[in-house]
Design a protein around this nucleic acid. Structure first.
Lengths: 196, 196
DNA sequence: TTCTCTTGCTAACGAGCGTTAGCAAGGCTA
DNA sequence: TAGCCTTGCTAACGCTCGTTAGCAAGAGAA
């Protein structure tokens, strides 16, 4: 090797570049040669750092899953405050994770299907568990009379759906910052569009 | 050929099967041999009916785009009724298109990226135009005091986001029918979750 | 200096890809 | 009967895929 820029970790660099490519072209349509070129090296060289293409996808998906759980647990850690507010905090925390790394989020949301078993099944278990966290909050909110919806499970899916579309249009350089977006999303989803 | 079941059109049959595969495995990860096997024939035989793999994707994406425009135009055809109700109708019409063919909808929403130019650009023009239709309705609703939101463009994205996640969890055999789902989604998005 | 770790190269592998050419057989129409 | 259209097959093409083996060179530690 000749020299190198201040490389934090070559492996992490590969992950980042791959994530960006996976997002725009999709996992299956991204070749290792493409990834190597984007990093300025040859395809074979990648394998000095990683075991396989799928290993990258695995790391990205499960890494972000951990981020989501961490943020959620923090958001609802104080169980003494009203559930509706806990929900708002969890919702805003979710948005902050989404906006912190849009590429990883998009991969997390769309490319997990290309994980092979048993990784894929394990991922879905985590995803279900995360959704269940929100569902519990909403159910509790309805029970305590703070929220209204005919179907908590249905409301949960719709709520997360609204949030998860964000990586497909959010641009970090846009006029709205992460916190502003999180706030507005919470307002709209909790308050609705109709003037009351 | 030996004989054949009541084949409506072999080409349409290929489109349908391909759409289902594109949905579950993704366009890039679906091979023509896989598609052929699913149809009970050999890979080469497909080319008696279609020109290319991408041609299928093109047809699915633009076909559904036409469906969405048709449903939208119908929903807002009577401009004498209040905008908020027009919006509700457009929203419910959108959901009905989504639920009528979940596989095609999923492909429309996620796989259009694999269209090559100029098809891809043309598709995005249609998509923007469709979103603009909703945005106009919401803007108008705010102007007339029927809706409230700090940012109509933002609200539009969130609204469509909530709807477009539907194909990833909707199952035709589920307990909720298309109309019921359309109604509940409209209620939740227009009315919000918070008890007022 | 010597050893080891990291990083990267070249060359090649077996496999699968989308697609084409050429042929054949059944069914419809004239 | 003759001709065409639809449908499907086999065999193969050129290409790209993910991955591996073997080698080399710089960097830091002993």
């Amino acid at each position: 090797m000749i020299s190198s820029a201040p490389t934090r970790s070559r492996k992490a660099q590969i992950d980042r570049t791959a994530t960006a490519l996976f997002r725009t072209r999709g996992y299956a349509a991204t070749s290792m040669r493409e990834l190597a070129t984007a990093l300025g090296l040859e395809a074979g060289s990648l394998y000095s750092h990683i075991k396989s293409k799928e290993e990258i996808l695995h790391r990205v998906c499960f890494g972000l899953a951990a981020d989501f759980f961490l943020a959620f647990d923090q958001a609802i850690s104080d169980s003494s405050i009203p559930v509706a507010i806990q929900l708002r905090q969890a919702l805003e925390a979710h948005v902050r994770v989404l906006t912190r790394d849009g590429a990883a989020s998009a991969v997390f949301l769309h490319e997990w299907r290309h994980l092979s078993e048993p990784g894929r099944a394990e991922f879905l278990v985590l995803r279900d568990r995360y959704e269940a966290g929100f569902r519990t909050l909403i159910t509790q909110g309805v029970t305590e009379g703070q929220l209204h919806t005919p179907d908590a499970a249905f409301a949960t899916l719709t709520l997360l759906a609204s949030l998860n579309w964000l990586p497909s249009w959010y641009r970090p350089e846009g006029k709205l910052g992460p916190d502003e977006i999180a706030h507005r999303l919470a307002e709209q989803l909790l308050g609705g569009l109709l003037k009351s």
